[in-house]
Amino acid sequence: MAAARSRPRPEAAARRRFVLLMLLPATALLLAVTLFPFLWAFAMSLTDLALTRPGQTRFVGLANYADHLASPDFWRAARVTALFTLLAVSIQLVLGVGLAVLLHRETRGAWAWRLAFLLPMAITPVAAIFTFRMMFHPSIGVFNAILRDLGLPPVDWLGTPGMALVSLLIVDCWQWTPFVLLIAAGGLASLDPEPLEAAEVDGATPWQVLRDHTLPMLAPFLAVAVVFRAIDAFKTFDIIFVLTGGGPGVATRTLNLLAYKQGIEFLSIGYAAALAIVMLVVTIVAAQLFLRRTGFFRPRAAL
């Protein structure tokens, strides 16, 4: 086309200028508000800065990092964090997708269902966690009252190491299964129904249709849900902080809680900053590997 050929150079420059201008405000703000504090935190992680000894800060290189990697506290917290993240995300993925598939078959009242399912993720977490604390209470909590009515022995929900982790998972899954459900439901609604109907006509059972057709087509949506959930589960704070404080003992102390304890409670800022940087590096590497594997970065329709 003549029009296309007559505007090569100035047009390319205009295109580049447009893209830059569109990206500029977000980039500037994120640089100012997130990159700068991050670089600062990195600088602090190379020192022994502690608010308990003001004015005596020395540069210690990578000593904080070496200390963490040699510390049993770090590895214990890393195991707890990995276990919590893995269990939380897998349970939420299975429940969320399963319920979304069921919900997809409901033609009437879908909106009312969704309103109920939306509630846990919309509610102010502090209020929800406080409610769970009441419900988990060993003597006056409603969960144990229900168990008693059923003739079952009471459970010490937050008091024993194993049960405390289970209880935290219950709260996290209550709050975030709906997030996976919503994204999966959105994905299902936007899928092309034709291949699914064709498979059904060919005599595939509902289970085969789900496994061979629906789930593979849904994969890109689920990848987003998994990435956002994993990032947030990895640094869960409020649920653990309010319900167990990392206890009993250190049974539910995740890396994030360990960093909080060292930084905000013991005021060893440099040491805590190093731990936070380690967490960030782990997240970035895991997210990169996952997103590249799922073909997330493939380019799409462009102008």
Binding site: F36, I264, I284
Partner: peptide, 10 residues
């Protein structure tokens, strides 16, 4: 992804 503890003090 940045853990809040890392950036809260800065």
């Amino acid at each position: 992804m940045t853990p809040p503890v890392a950036v809260l003090i800065p």
